[in-house]
Nucleic acid binder design. Structure first.
Lengths: 195, 195
DNA sequence: CCACCATCGAAACGTAACGTTTCGTTTCAG
DNA sequence: CTGAAACGAAACGTTACGTTTCGATGGTGG
C-alpha cells in the first residue's frame, strides 16, 4: 500500500531533492535523468516508473517546493491587497535565479512536450485559476472590484510577468507589479464577460 | 562575393522553405536538422555554416515568413485602430495551427538555448519593441492615449495573448483581443513611468 | 575559353542522452 | 518465515546531434 514512510516514498523524496539540488548547481538544461538517478542513489527505471520525462519530474518538484503559496491568491478579506501580494510572490519567484530557472525550464519544456503541457494546463489553469477566480468572485460579493470579469482580471495581472520572464528579457520587480496592478485596476469594468 | 542569385543564396532559400514545409507537415518538434538538409537537398555542414542550431534557423524562417507585418504596429494615423489591428494580426498568427506551432516551437526552444534567447531578445525586444513604442509616442504627440507609458501599454496589450499561447491552453480570438484592448484603454493613465 | 580553388552535397563518424531490458538483491506483507 | 513486488546497478539499442572526410560542382581570374 501507499505509505509516507515506505521505500517508495523515501526514494521519491530523494529524487525530487536531487533534482532541485542539481538544478540549483548546474541549471535546468544541464540536468539529465541519469544525473538525477545517480545523485539520488536510485536506478533509472525508478525514475521512469513515476515520471515519464524530465519535465514531469521537475513539474512535481516545482509544485512541492514552490506551489500554491506562490501561485494562489490569498484571502485576508482585502481583495486588492491579496492581488498585490499574489503578484509580489510571483515576482519574487521570477527574480530568484534558482526558482526562475526552474520555472523557465519547465515552461519551456512544456512547449514541446504535449504530455507535460496537458498536465500543466490542467494543474495550473483549471485547478489554480479556478480557485483564483473564486477568490476574486468572493471579493466581488463583498463589493470589491465589481465589474471585472474574474478570468480577464487574472489574465491582465499575471500575463505581463510571464511575458517579461519568457519573451522579453526585461526584469520584473515589485515596482513593475505595482504599476501593472494600479493601471489595470484603474480600468473601467470590462464591457462583457467574453474572455 | 554575396549575391542574390549565387549558389549560397539559392541554398539558403531552399533550406528555409524546406524547414517551413517540414514544420507544416510534421510539426516543429518532429523536424530534425537532418530532415531539413535532406529535403533541401543540401549537406548538413551547409546548415551549420549559417545557423548554429535548429532554433536559430527557424527564427530566421519565422522572421522571413511572418515578420514585421504581424509584430509591428502599423501607422494609419489612428493609434487605437492601429493597436487593434496589431492585436488582430498576432491573434491570427496564434490561431493558425501552422504558424502558432512555429512560434511556440521557437519560443519554447529559446527557453533552453541562450544564444537563441539572446537573438530573440535583441531582435524582438530592442528592435521591434523600440519601433512600437515610437509609434505609440507618435500617436501621443497627436493627442491620442496621452498618459500611458508606451512600454507598459505594449506589455499590457500583447502579454495576455502570449500568456494564453504559452501558459494556459485557452484560445485567443478577436473578441478576446477586443476585450483586452477595451479594458486596458479604459484604464486611467499609469501613475508613473516606472515600467 | 580554360584552369583553378573555394564551396558544395553526400556519407560516415564520434558523442550524448534517451528510455528500456536484464539481473541479482532488498524490503515489506501475510 | 516466505514469497511477491519493487528496488539499484549495469548494459543495451536508438536517435539526433554536430563534425569530419571526400569527391564533385560551379563561379572566377588568367
Amino acid at each position: 500500500m501507499e505509505s509516507t514512510t515506505g521505500r517508495t516514498a523515501r526514494s521519491r523524496a530523494k529524487i525530487l531533492q536531487a533534482a532541485l539540488d542539481l538544478c540549483a548547481e548546474r541549471g535546468y538544461n544541464a540536468v539529465t535523468m541519469e544525473a538525477i538517478a545517480t545523485r539520488a542513489q536510485v536506478g533509472k527505471p525508478t525514475l521512469y516508473r513515476w515520471w515519464s520525462s524530465k519535465g514531469t519530474l521537475f513539474l512535481d518538484a516545482l509544485t512541492e517546493r514552490f506551489g500554491d503559496p506562490y501561485f494562489q491568491i490569498g484571502d485576508t478579506g482585502d481583495l486588492v491587497a491579496d492581488l498585490r501580494n499574489w503578484l509580489y510572490g510571483i515576482t519574487e519567484l521570477f527574480l530568484d535565479p534558482v526558482s526562475s530557472d526552474l520555472v523557465v525550464g519547465v515552461a519551456g519544456t512544456a512547449q514541446h512536450d504535449p504530455e507535460l503541457a496537458a498536465i500543466l494546463h490542467r494543474q495550473i489553469h483549471l485547478t489554480l485559476s479556478g480557485r483564483n477566480q473564486e477568490r476574486i468572485r468572493a471579493g466581488q460579493r463583498n463589493g470589491q472590484l465589481i465589474g471585472f470579469d474574474p478570468l480577464l482580471l487574472e489574465d491582465l495581472l499575471v500575463a505581463p510577468l510571464w511575458y517579461r520572464l519568457l519573451i522579453t528579457d526585461r526584469p520584473v520587480s515589485r515596482a513593475y507589479a505595482d504599476t501593472v496592478l494600479n493601471t489595470v485596476l484603474g480600468a473601467a469594468a470590462s464591457p462583457s464577460g467574453d474572455a
